[in-house]
């Protein structure tokens, strides 16, 4: 049995099957990201004064990653164009760049994630003095790196300060050692905070660049809340991680498909070139969509 129009277009619609398929799929993706963007807007517009996080992402890295993704998009179309003139070698070359770009994008994104997991915010019970730019201010909220027992720590939160008791299984064997409570830890504070306006924040960031920060000793009993820059920190980081994480999964999925067509699936170029070109085109459409989502994600999450 043969399914018609897998490679040649159907005369009356003028398209082949998988092209209809991918556009339908992209339509559903539009709705998926549309819902997430709506959520973003609502959470942001509804956020009380001074609670919306901004200005904490690494803009140069984000910009670079944008360029990486744009490059991968153009190599996809260039690869497809090469196939159209029958130049398989050049197609291989361009798509290799695409795949490398995808990996680079994911690598850079993971690095950014790691940076965030290292960063913390403490909400204190009383105000202390810290530097914002060159100015000294009183505040009960500090962001920065957290140091404990000589190491920078990841993923700390209020619960961690209390420690956890030992866990034993039924026979009394210890399966998880006790984590002793924390009495105090050090913060290496950033000289700015997201409660500032974007302008002030950028200014403070510039002023403090290259200046060594003093560590602040913080007693656990003074801490109202402690959180790393993880999804539960705030609705901003929640939507940031959800959107970029979902987008990252799309990058990964797209890269795997493109790789499959490029490598193990390339035999089809010999047996059914038209269908092979269709596959390249369809996977490319998905890839451009992923790029397109990022084009909105980048300004919305990094800049605004």
């Amino acid at each position: 049995m043969e399914i018609p129009f897998t490679s040649k277009p159907r005369p009356d619609t003028g398209i082949y099957n998988s092209k209809v398929g991918i556009w339908l799929f992209l339509a559903s993706e539009v709705m998926l990201f549309g819902a997430l963007f709506s959520a973003y807007i609502l959470l942001r517009v509804g956020a009380p004064e001074g609670t919306w996080v901004h200005g904490l992402l690494n803009i140069p890295i984000g910009t670079f990653n944008t360029a990486v993704l744009i490059t991968s998009s153009v190599t996809v179309v260039l690869g497809w164009a090469s196939l159209q003139v029958g130049n398989f070698g050049r197609y291989k070359f361009y798509q290799a760049i695409t795949i490398l770009c995808a990996l680079a994008f994911l690598g850079i994104k993971s690095y950014e994630y790691r940076e965030k997991f290292l960063h913390h915010e403490v909400w204190l019970n009383h105000k202390i003095k810290v530097k914002h730019g060159h100015q000294e201010v009183e505040t009960d909220r500090i962001i920065g790196h957290l140091e404990y027992e000589g190491h920078h720590q990841y993923f700390w939160n209020t619960k961690r300060l209390k420690g956890t008791p030992e866990e034993k299984d039924k026979d009394g064997k210890v399966i998880k050692a006790a984590v002793p409570p924390v009495e105090s830890f050090k913060m290496i504070p950033d000289a700015f905070h997201y409660t500032m306006t974007p302008k002030e924040l950028a200014h403070a960031r510039k002023e403090s660049a290259g200046v060594a920060h003093e560590e602040i000793e913080i007693k656990a009993s003074d801490v109202k809340r402690l959180s790393a820059f993880v999804p539960s920190h705030s609705t901003y980081f929640a939507i940031y991680f959800t959107l970029t994480g979902l987008h990252g999964l799309h990058v990964l999925g797209g890269a795997i498909v493109i790789f499959y067509i490029w490598g193990p699936g390339a035999k089809m170029w010999k047996t059914d070139p038209q269908r092979y070109m269709n596959r390249v085109e369809v996977s490319g459409l998905f890839w451009h969509f992923v790029d397109l989502v990022w084009i909105f994600l980048f300004p919305v999450i990094y800049l605004l």
Partner: peptide, 22 residues
């Protein structure tokens, strides 16, 4: 799920057209 199109039928654009696209 195979299809009987051959490379001769494959829908290709002329090189000039493609280089314009590029």
């Amino acid at each position: 799920m195979s299809d009987h199109s051959h490379s001769t039928e494959a829908h290709k654009h002329s090189p000039q057209e493609v280089s314009k696209h590029v």
